[in-house]
Design a protein around this nucleic acid. Structure first.
Length: 290
DNA sequence: CTTGGGTCCTGTGCGC
DNA sequence: TGCGCACAGGACCCAA
């Protein structure tokens, strides 16, 4: 079973989970328990967050962006293992299904904790520390965001756009879809699922995929991401996950991490295979995907 | 310019 | 049952 691997849908689920407790809230205390995650924290992180009010919670690709009334924006990346636990005191108001009532005990790898004026608590836990936090002027761009391509659920992501991006390239389609400069937010899981749905072999070179198949790939990517966000939302409502992992969508996976299991395509007798591309696993059906 | 591989990090799961 | 090791992977970084 795959561990938590936050890609765009999981990050969007986290953003929605934060909204009721952190959105509009005043940060009254900030605990920073270590000097860094993937990179050193920005200077005086705790001091710059404490006393700030959260005006808006946005998402760009796999980044969560909290706009503060100090004209700074808090950037959060969950990396591989980052989780956000959202809790309120057990004496506090109950907002059904959205967060934990009663603060859980501190755990190993709880690196940053935000306390809100409503008694809420946002705990960032990241065992592998591939995650990141930064603070930058809201009016400015950020080097991590500048290089990102289109949002796969946005209007700019369509057939002609992806056809143009694929044209002239000669990389495996798997690598192209993982390239955040083209489409921003896809990771290994949803790339595997999208290619399986479209019947495209992950090693297929981008230049060799016909226009109609690229169009259907766009539709598959949008569909698989939307479905995963829907499942994430329902899991929030049903108390089933602290936000940040793939949660119950893993039961819907047709290709990812299903090596040697039967292909789920109707009437297909194939078996899911695993190959390594750039040291990463790709899962696919050799009968469906060409 | 593009492209591919190394690196970071720790928990998990497997084989012996 | 314990130990060691491969593996997971997002994004930076550098070499070719």
């Amino acid at each position: 079973m795959p561990g938590p691997m936050p890609e765009l849908p999981e990050v969007e689920t986290v953003r929605r989970g934060l909204e009721p407790v952190l959105g509009g809230a005043l940060i009254v205390r900030t605990e920073v328990r270590r000097p860094d995650l993937r990179w050193p924290f920005p200077e005086r992180l705790a001091e710059r967050l404490t006393g700030a009010r959260v005006n808006a919670l946005r998402r760009r690709s796999k980044y969560i962006l909290a706009d503060l009334d100090t004209d700074e924006t808090l950037l959060i990346h969950l990396g591989m293992s980052g989780r956000m636990t959202v809790s309120v005191p057990d004496t506090g108001p109950l907002i059904p299904g959205v967060f934990v009532r009663g603060h859980p005990p501190q755990e190993k790898h709880d690196h940053v904790v935000l306390h809100t004026d409503g008694g809420g608590r946002i705990t960032f836990n990241d065992a592998r520390r591939f995650g990141a936090m930064d603070l930058f002027p809201t009016a400015c761009s950020h080097p991590l965001l500048d290089v990102l391509g289109v949002e796969p659920l946005g209007n700019a992501f369509d057939g002609p756009m992806l056809i143009a991006a694929f044209k002239g390239r000669n990389t495996p389609v798997k690598a192209a879809l993982l390239d955040q400069r083209i489409v921003a937010g896809l990771g290994n899981i949803y790339v595997c699922e999208s290619l399986w749905r479209t019947g495209i072999h992950p090693a297929c070179r981008t230049g060799r995929i016909g226009r109609a198949r690229v169009e259907s790939l766009v539709a598959a990517i949008r569909a698989v991401l939307s479905e995963a966000i829907d499942v994430g939302g329902s899991s929030l409502r049903d108390h089933r996950q602290t936000s940040g992992d793939i949660g119950y969508f893993q039961h819907s996976l047709a290709a990812y991490d299903r090596e040697n299991q039967p292909c789920k395509a109707p009437g297909c007798s194939g078996t899911i295979k695993r190959i390594l591309q750039s040291g990463r696993s790709s899962f696919f059906c050799p009968i469906c995907q060409r």
